[in-house]
Design a protein around this nucleic acid. Sequence first.
DNA 1: ATAGGGTTAG
Length: 659
Amino acid sequence: MKNLNPSSAFAKTTWKNHFSTKSNLTTWFNKYLDKSNVSSWNSIIAELARGGDSTEALRAFYSMRRLSLKPNRSTFPCAIKACSALLDLYSGKQTHQQALIFGYDTDLFVSSALIDMYSKCGQLRDARILFDQIPQPNIVSWTSMITGYVQNNNPGQALLLFKELLIQESENDGDASNEHVFVDSVAIVSVISACSRVPVKGASEGIHGMVIKKGFDGDVAVENTLLDAYAKRGDVALSRKMFDAIVDKDDVSWNSMISVYAQNGMSNEALEVFYEMVRDNNVSYNIITLSSVLLACAHSGALQTGKCIHDQVIKMDLENNVIVGTCIIDMYCKCGRVEMARKAFNCMKVKNVRSWTALISGYGMHGRAKEALEVFYEMIRNGVRPNYITFVSVLAACSHAGVVQEGWDCFKAMKEEFKVEPGLEHYSCMVDLLGRAGYLNHAYNLIKEMKVTPDFVIWGSLLAACRMHKNVELAEISAYKLFELDSNNCGYYVLLSNIYADAGRWKDVERMRLVIKDRGLVKSPGFSLVELKGRVHIFLVGDKEHPQHEKIYKHLQELNVKLQGVGYIPKLTSAPYDVDDEEKGLTLRVHSEKLAVVFAIMHTFPGATIHVIKNLRICGDCHTFINLISKIVDREIVVRDSKRFHHFKDGSCSCGDYW
DNA sequence: ATAGGGTTAG
């Protein structure tokens, strides 16, 4: 990736991202147009609905009705569309009623709009009843219904309906008269989207074949959907290939590619495409782009870039959008700045359950259970109903801080008061909370009570807790479950081996070592990230690839000497047994977080806070090392590991050594 | 003057 200064990348293009301020058409109308003219009202309603101001469109429709003007066949589709956009089922039903009264409910335009409205509002059955009542549905009717199934998580049914459509089409005999339906590019887009959501191998390839056969492969929306479909199947490389092949890329193409990278954790690639998009003179980025970029920043801990995006959101006057606002909260939390997140949260005019949840989750990952719970209670007092994910965040907060009683109370309240059925994530939080606090049998009993089959996360939490509390018996039970569930994961064998070692059972240690060796299992390599001047640097365990690695090791050595002066003893490994032992040889494989921290010390001003992201959990030795470093170099060091944040300051860590 | 599709958050 090019070494771009994100703020300068923006400076050039700010001007072209002006969002047209919504002129208040109703005011304009009140002044200049003839209120008794239905056509004038129709234009107004259509213009507002198309411009995305559905509230105003609906208001205009109601004003028109108050004047006792008769709406016609052009009025209803727009009014219904506005209800659909607002997910306003109540107004939708009322408008449907009016359409019935005026005899327009069988109109193809009106019925398509109604099918769309009912399915967007989650009333798929009503949508289907309407569809079945249409004597001769056209391609728009079919597509509305197919899309309804896709958007209500029933892609299988969508594909079945598409098959019916194809049969219908094949009976046309090539006669292109009005009564005949032909699959068009809009229908194809909907069907590709269905294919990408259905768990059938080769579904996307199948539809891609049809796209080419029917000649839709030059349509940019079709291409964009295929790009997304391949990414959903997990083939990001193919997705990129599709992207590169689009000649007439539009903003959605760019947004899709950025989103694909962001959602697959490829943050640098996401930013690279974004900067390229910024430089492209034919497209402009929008709120969707910025949301995806913020996600990439959150993922890689790119705080400086994230702040630039936040500035950009403000400049573009988009900070009142609830989605981008939630992205900003999440970005600050995941970049270690939970206070900034709180500030952004407080400024939000519109908050929804996901905004609240983002903040709760943020406090939780920083080990601040008290604040997480306070926000949770405040949310309930505000009448916002917590959902499945909210409770995952609340329970995770409790587990990170070891807050057993409140955690248990919330778990109970979730089931009994809020009627949220506990899922795998909730159980893994509870097992972790109870297990680490020493209530191993309670944790085990909870697992046995589960209605869903416990997964590797749950058994893994129990196994880790068993190590902490030296319970070999329960450790063996958990480990053997894990070997069944995920037999190639080296970590479980290492953990069990360490538990045996703690108990002095050396024969068992040797047995585990042999299993690892015989199966050729390897640990997933650790890596850490540090952002410097808008660029994210990656460090691998024992890194010799980074251009500055020699300087970094030299500086690390100097720091080690200083630390040894205050009593630090570098450990070869923090565990009694480590698979790396055999490959250790002459040089120690330095963990990536040490390299990242040293690199950051070398390249930032004295006193500046250091942020590091690590893909695995931080080990005991690195924890001690960074703790002491924070005192010696007088720096605040923030480390996000795979589980949570550690804020090191003046020789102590926010986790209280409980992690 | 009217209907259906592709990209965004916890």
